[in-house]
Design a protein around this nucleic acid. Sequence first.
DNA 1: GGAAGGATGCACT
DNA 2: GTGCATCCTTCCA
Length: 204
Amino acid sequence: MINSDKRLTDSFYSRSDVVLIARELLGMKIFTVIDNVVTAGIITETEAYAGMNDKACHAHLGRFTKRTATMYEKGGTAYVYLCYGIHHLFNVVTNVEGKGDAVLIRAIEPVEGMEAMQERRAVKSAAIKLGSGPGKLTQALGINRGHNGTDLTTSEEIWIEATDKPLSNSRIVSAKRIGIDYAEEDADLPWRFYIGQNKSVSKY
DNA sequence: GGAAGGATGCACT
DNA sequence: GTGCATCCTTCCA
C-alpha cells in the first residue's frame, strides 16, 4: 500500500455530517493508479449531497435503483456514474451504510502525472485546465464506471490522502450547487465548496 | 423493446 | 458569455 499513513480512513468518511466532510476534502489529494500510471490532484471543488432529505440527490426519498445503489454503501465507497451519456462523475460516499450521503468531487488541480492526464484528455482545443470540471477530472484521472463501488480505504487504484498543508478557513468559499435547478428549494443550499482564488475550479 | 433523462463540455459569436 | 450537441444507462411497459 502506498503512503498508507496519510490515506483517509473509515473514521473520516463515516461521519454523519456530509457538508463538513465536503468542506474538509478541499485541499486533500486524490490519487489514482490506472494502467500502472500514477496521477494525483488536489481537490479544489466539492459539493455535498445529503441523501434522502436532499431533492438534488439521486438517493432522495429513499429512491433505490441499480444506479443509486452505490450511494447507500458505507462511507469511503466511490460512486461513479455517467451523466449525459458522456461524462463520468466521481463521488465519495459518506456516512454509514444505508444513508445515501455523498460528496461530489467537482474539480481538481493536477499535481502528478500531468502528461498522462493530458494524453487522456486529448482534447482538440488548448485545454490547460485538466481537472476544472466534474467530467474532466474523471477523464484526466482515468476514472470510469468500472470504478463504481471501489472502497477508497483499501483500493490500490483510487484513494484520497490528507494534505500536508491544511487550508485556512478564509480560503474556503461556499456557494450554491450547480446544474440541479430541478431540485427546487434545495438548489439554493450553499453546499458547494471551493478554494478561493484557485484556477482549477469549474467555470463558475 | 422503447423512451426518457441527465450533478456537462465545448465551440462558436 | 451563450447556445446546443450528445449518447449511454436506466426504467417501465
